[in-house]
Design a binder for these strands. Structure first.
Lengths: 333, 333
DNA sequence: GCTTGCAATGAAACCGTTTGTATTGAAATA
DNA sequence: TATTTCAATACAAACGGTTTCATTGCAAGC
């Protein structure tokens, strides 16, 4: 493989000149520039990035820590991140953390060992949850999910409380009173926030909250299906199911139908996220739109700013959500 | 940030010894080793990977080119790749190519500029489709999809022809005779292979192939929904729809139901891929299981072997598929 | 006791760029 | 004409590790 030395020799200039021909062409005379580029072309010269990066002390790479790459929502966020990263000439390193703090810590180490310039965390653990005393600015870190932990770094999130509240209000406004809740994992902050939103809506309508109508489960179709089975076998008089993710909702719908229920007649179901499948499933799912791609885009934009030193500390971007009304909920007469 | 010099000073040894303490601890005396590690610990020394990689001329990173990261099937393959990559201590660079050859070429350049050691291509374009004369071994390349192009590099694939043929035979064996085909993008090799399999099954049953019952579309729910609409409005007497992806099938189911059809009574639908949603949709989808995670695992394993020089040339791994029978197909009486 | 062999360590070259500083030559100025 | 200025380029020193080769000291063998 040709290197800068070879090009410089062929063009009859010094390596420095070749280097500048690429990084700062304006500095060279028209003539030398042409000669250098020609020589580079002829030798098919490609600069060795490792040597470059080593020298300039940046990697132009950002690590994205994804709890589960195969999850559609994360995949969409990742897609948004990718778009902006490409635009800004950053490379993306992707790590599927399985939500394992050890793996996440290993991820942070990648910026300490200078393999990546920064880390975008799609999981719930914040910087402070992973290392003891995060020296501010030491590890450029952006989190793309609402988190409980105090943070001194940028975050992009949605208002889970408000979104859940408005969805619950919608159900209540249609006359539903016995509403089961298919909650996600109990230890997750988003779960508690969405539950809080749900309860707040009940409050507004002057309806008591029944702990017994809540069932927790994994944020997945299987989790939703199982939780729904537990809840529905316990309580057949529910008219609606407030579900904390579309995947759970889809699992719940399957369960309900397997139990012989007619949807939405016998049971209304709502989701959360607005994944594409919700639009096509039967019945099409009423849900909360979460701007996944946008979340990714904003996260990567923040990361770029952070790396360029344009922002510091705890920027906090809250993106809007929207109710998406489809056929899985019926008005109670 | 502490560097090797600092550690060596504190431990009273040379940098070489510190380096060896990590790369080849057995070479050091018990005593020095302890001293060095202690010093490293105290200074919180993390070797600068860029310096290391620059010196050893490897990146331990592999680029994965994904046509669409938000697509569940690719996401699952990626997940499989990730598992093995982590296991073998490789990092993953991910590029969402949007199936754009220019982006793919840029990807290949990453190994020429030594940003990545090799490339795993999830798209259909082979090495020869991207660059003129791929010098053998120059760019470690593994492709994870059946491809038309001649290849001098490892490929992991499924037998699309056989899988499609067996699915079509299944439909035929249940008595279906008027079977519509929702094909994917017409220029894709997998499309033509699956279509060939379908026709082969027809042949075996002595049934003629009707070009008119084929409708092409994007490999997506929207694509399936649209293609189904075109096909069904043209021909209401179909008893089954042979679909080339689960996403298309799900789109088609939506369309059929919107047209007032009762599934599977009025129309049987089959998919291809076995994505998780197929299990939960209504009716649950009969499909061809494609071992997505496994494909990823094998691809990454091959890449590892390739990089270690253990294999060369055109390894070709064909993974098995399986019919997954669910409720979206009924026996014609 | 002297040589030999080997384990442990150090010195220094090297990896391929970038970049600060020095040098050159020609144009502009006095 | 002598001096200054400036653009264009070269020189050489980094960058932070790894690795080759040389050196040292000690135990084993004669």
């Amino acid at each position: 493989m040709a290197q800068i030395r070879d090009v410089s020799k062929r063009a009859g200039v010094s390596p420095a000149t070749v280097s500048r021909a690429f990084s700062d062409p304006g500095k060279l005379s028209k003539d030398t520039l042409k000669r250098v580029l020609k020589a580079a072309e002829e030798l098919n010269y490609k600069p060795n990035s490792m040597a470059q990066l080593f020298r300039i002390k940046r990697t132009n790479a950002v690590l994205v820590m994804v709890p589960d790459v195969a999850n559609v929502l994360f995949a969409r966020i990742l897609s948004g991140i990718e778009r902006i990263a490409t635009e800004k000439d950053y490379f993306l390193l992707v790590s599927d953390t399985k939500d394992d703090p050890e793996v996440e810590r290993a991820g942070l180490e990648m910026v300490e060992t200078r393999r990546a310039d920064g880390v975008i965390q799609l999981g719930e653990r914040g910087l402070g949850d992973l290392i003891a005393d995060p020296a501010p600015g030491q590890i450029p870190f952006v989190q793309a999910v609402e988190t409980r932990s105090a943070h001194a770094y940028p975050i992009v999130q949605i208002n889970n409380f408000a979104a859940a509240e408005s969805m619950a209000s919608y159900l209540l406004s249609l006359g539903h009173r016995k509403i089961g809740v298919l909650a996600g994992l109990q230890d997750r902050y988003v779960t508690s926030e969405r539950l809080r939103g749900f309860r707040s809506a009940l409050d507004s309508f002057g309806i008591g909250f029944d702990e017994n109508l809540v069932e927790y489960g994994a944020y997945s179709m299987a989790g939703g299906a199982q939780a729904a089975l537990r809840l529905l076998s316990r309580n057949r008089s529910l008219t609606a199911l407030f579900t904390m993710s579309d995947e759970m909702a889809i699992g719940a719908i399957r369960t309900a139908q397997d139990l012989g229920m007619q949807l939405p007649h016998d049971l209304s179901v709502t989701g959360f996220d607005n994944i594409e499948f919700g639009k096509y499933c039967t019945p099409p799912l009423t849900t909360v739109m979460q701007p996944a791609e946008r979340i990714g885009e904003v996260a990567m934009t923040l990361m770029g700013n952070l790396l360029r030193g344009e922002i510091t500390g705890d920027a906090e971007q809250t993106l809007g959500t929207e109710l998406v009304i489809r056929a899985s909920v019926r008005r109670l007469t």
